[in-house]
Design a protein around this nucleic acid. Structure first.
Lengths: 109, 109
DNA sequence: CCGAATCCAATATGATACTG
DNA sequence: CAGTATCATATTGGATTCGG
């Protein structure tokens, strides 16, 4: 049952890596929305209950900084902006799915 | 590709359920330590780098409030206190494992 | 040893208004 | 449409001290 302490320390540090990328109330809901095909600021805000523009803006920048999404400016008139997932971001889908699964069954208690 | 918006809303709300239980820097590292067999306050603090007594104390209360752990007072002298996982808490292991897995491969980039 | 209490700093989140 | 600016509140983190 007991495990090597040094391995536990490694695992804790891996968890903290993950948390440093997806921590907070909003990043995973944003990613889920984007997995579902939503790519515009306005649409994301409409789709995610109670998120404010200020928070959405900050979170998108964080996600961009961690290379999970890219911000694309279309040179139209007026300018339109699209947020797209990077290939790397799809590696998070198992985690997101587990979150959904657990939250669903937890609610049922 | 596009999904029914109402289903997305449900999924977001499930994710938020999960986050309401495990959000923050420390709860998953604490659970991981406990999965590994650590059950005493002092040992948890030693095992989780940089956590303070104040934060550990608060997080343990939160986890207890969400029925993931129980606090057992042994009537010895001096009193010894043991934190134990509830059966319910084990339903989180797939999520924790995903966190470890993702954090590990992320680090390698 | 196992925390609780206190005080304070730093972040995260939220409400609202406004701009190119 | 896609944000920024400003202000306010809430939550989290940290240092230290204290009591059973």
């Amino acid at each position: 049952m007991k495990q090597d302490i040094s391995k536990i320390a490694d695992k804790i540090s891996y968890i903290q890596n993950t948390l440093s990328v997806v921590n907070g109330k909003w990043k995973l809901p944003i990613l889920l929305s984007m997995y579902s095909g939503i790519s515009r600021f306005r649409d994301l805000q409409r789709n995610i209950p109670n998120i404010t523009t200020r928070v959405l803006s900050k979170e998108l920048k964080d996600l961009e900084g961690n290379k999970l999404i890219v911000r694309i400016v279309h040179d139209t008139y007026p300018v339109s902006i699209e947020y797209k997932l990077t290939p790397h971001s799809h590696s998070l889908t198992p985690l997101v799915d587990e979150m959904i699964k657990w939250g669903k069954q937890y609610k049922e208690k």
